[in-house]
């Protein structure tokens, strides 16, 4: 029985797809058979971040409409064993998704996979609700910025009221907070919300803090999930987050700005 994890945020552009790719890859690197599903029907992005856009033949909507089976549609990752991508359709919209159809696909994937990562579209409408409906756990991606925090709060409300677990009154969806684009120097300047501020407002357990990093943009453009770059702080921070998701206790890194040396201060770097 696979564990279904939705990566969601409410607000767009905070790093959901980057996170789905990194966390999915990280779980597979740890030996878990993992599939990442792109729920952003109409705005296909995950395949680009995963670097498999040239190998998309069939998509999620084809599977829902019985036009292709899962074996034909799933794209196997070239770098990591046990990692698969189920791409979204570029030519359809969110109305192509139905709860019955999504449930059928998830049930079929559940038989063979350990983890199913659902990469949610932005917003709180149908697409986002479809992505989170069947979730066992949720990774709420938030930037340290007031509008992102409020939208995350909103999506947490929806998780608690409109998910399958909420509707059936079973054990609630397990929530994880993942703070991305965190810049400790700007937090110290008071320009950015701190980890403590965000934790206080959202009141859910912190799963990871990903520092703002040029490596993330570079990784996206190259189609290689940033977790592969273990020289970058962002890559290391995602690895820590995966460990925490798997239940390990890992100390938080990259929460404070590196101290500037005298020379750097003098030249104003």
């Amino acid at each position: 029985m696979a564990k279904i994890i939705v990566v969601t945020s409410g607000k767009g552009g905070v790093g959901k797809t980057t996170t789905s790719a990194a966390i999915g890859t990280g779980l597979a690197l740890k030996g878990n058979k993992t599939v990442i599903i792109d729920f952003d029907v109409g705005l296909r992005n995950l395949d680009l971040i995963m670097g498999c856009e040239r190998r998309v033949v069939y998509d999620f909507v084809n599977v829902l409409n019985n036009e292709a089976n899962l074996t034909q549609t799933l794209i196997k990752d070239k770098r990591v064993e046990n990692l698969f991508v189920l791409p979204a359709s570029q030519t359809r919209d969110k109305d192509a998704l139905t709860l019955e159809g999504v449930e059928k696909v998830l049930n079929e994937l559940s038989e063979t996979f350990d983890f199913i990562i659902c990469d949610s579209p932005a917003g709180i409408e149908k697409g986002a609700q479809m992505a989170l409906y069947f979730a066992d756990e949720a990774i709420v991606v938030t930037n340290p910025e007031v509008s992102s925090v409020r939208d995350s709060d909103r999506i947490l409300g929806i998780l608690q009221s409109k998910s399958k677990r909420a509707e059936q009154g079973s054990e609630p969806v397990k929530e994880h907070l993942l703070l991305t684009r965190y810049n400790p120097a700007r937090v110290e300047e008071g320009e950015m919300l701190s980890v403590t501020d965000v934790e206080e407002i959202l009141a859910i357990p912190l799963m990871g803090v990903i520092p703002e990093s040029e490596a993330v943009l570079k990784a996206s453009n190259q189609g290689e999930p940033v977790i592969h770059n273990q020289d970058a702080d962002a890559g290391k921070a995602y690895s820590d987050a995966v460990d925490r998701l798997l239940g390990e206790t890992v100390e938080f890194r990259f929460l404070t700005a590196p101290k500037k040396g005298i020379l750097k201060r003098l030249i104003g770097a």
Partner: peptide
């Protein structure tokens, strides 16, 4: 539990006690 942004809670004919925060919105 906390009352999240976008949620509305009404205690009809009684007091309302919330063990948690009431978020913006």
């Amino acid at each position: 539990k906390p009352v999240r942004s976008g949620q509305q809670i009404y205690a009809e004919g009684s007091d309302l006690i919330i063990l948690g925060s009431v978020s913006g919105g």
